[in-house]
Computed example of a mutant assay.
Amino acid sequence: MSQPAQTLAAITYLVADYDEAIDWFTRALGFELISDQDLGEGKRWVEIGAGDGGVKLLLARARGVQQVAAIGASAGDRVGFFLHTTDLETKRAWMEHEGVRFEEATRHEPYGKVAVFRDLYGNRWDLLEPTA
């Protein structure tokens, strides 16, 4: 029996506020708002993505002490998200203009150019221009 096809479609991303997160991701990273549906009782189905048809982030407003404490700590303090670009220096300059904080100068690794930044909640990301 063969396995049916599958796709990793979305990853839950905890936020303090839907609109704040939508604004930051669309403005600072250039992401697209894919879906924003009211589910009632203050809950929404909000998907954002890089516009490439790849994995989406499903924004979930944190509720309760445990979820609120997890905002900004999705991967502990490791890099948990990887944003690929074809021109790291141009993308970095644009992001810095939008207020994104980078932790380091761009460095060159065997797999490409990379620079770590933090998002609005403190999660760490790699901005990565992969080696061809």
Results as ranks from 00 to 15, higher is better:
1 M>Q: 08
2 S>F: 12
7 T>I: 11
7 T>Y: 09
7 T>H: 13
8 L>H: 13
9 A>S: 12
11 I>F: 09
14 L>E: 02
14 L>Q: 03
14 L>I: 05
18 Y>Q: 06
20 E>S: 11
22 I>Q: 02
22 I>Y: 01
23 D>K: 14
24 W>I: 02
25 F>E: 02
28 A>V: 05
29 L>A: 14
29 L>R: 03
29 L>P: 03
31 F>H: 02
32 E>Y: 07
33 L>N: 04
33 L>S: 09
33 L>D: 04
35 S>E: 14
35 S>N: 12
35 S>L: 14
39 L>F: 04
39 L>W: 00
40 G>A: 01
40 G>S: 01
41 E>Q: 14
43 K>S: 09
44 R>N: 00
44 R>E: 00
47 E>G: 00
48 I>T: 01
49 G>Q: 07
50 A>T: 12
51 G>L: 09
51 G>D: 13
52 D>S: 15
54 G>S: 15
54 G>E: 13
54 G>A: 15
54 G>I: 12
55 V>G: 07
55 V>E: 09
56 K>A: 13
59 L>Q: 11
61 R>A: 12
62 A>H: 03
65 V>Q: 12
65 V>L: 08
66 Q>H: 07
67 Q>S: 04
68 V>I: 13
70 A>V: 05
73 A>Y: 13
79 V>R: 00
79 V>F: 01
80 G>T: 05
84 H>M: 12
85 T>A: 08
85 T>G: 08
86 T>H: 13
88 L>F: 01
90 T>E: 06
90 T>A: 15
90 T>R: 06
91 K>A: 07
92 R>L: 02
95 M>I: 10
96 E>H: 02
97 H>E: 14
99 G>H: 11
100 V>Y: 06
100 V>G: 03
101 R>G: 05
103 E>F: 05
106 T>K: 05
107 R>F: 06
110 P>W: 05
113 K>C: 04
113 K>Y: 09
115 A>V: 15
117 F>E: 08
119 D>C: 11
119 D>Q: 09
120 L>D: 04
121 Y>I: 00
122 G>Q: 08
124 R>I: 08
125 W>T: 06
128 L>I: 15
128 L>R: 04
131 T>E: 14
131 T>D: 12
132 A>M: 10
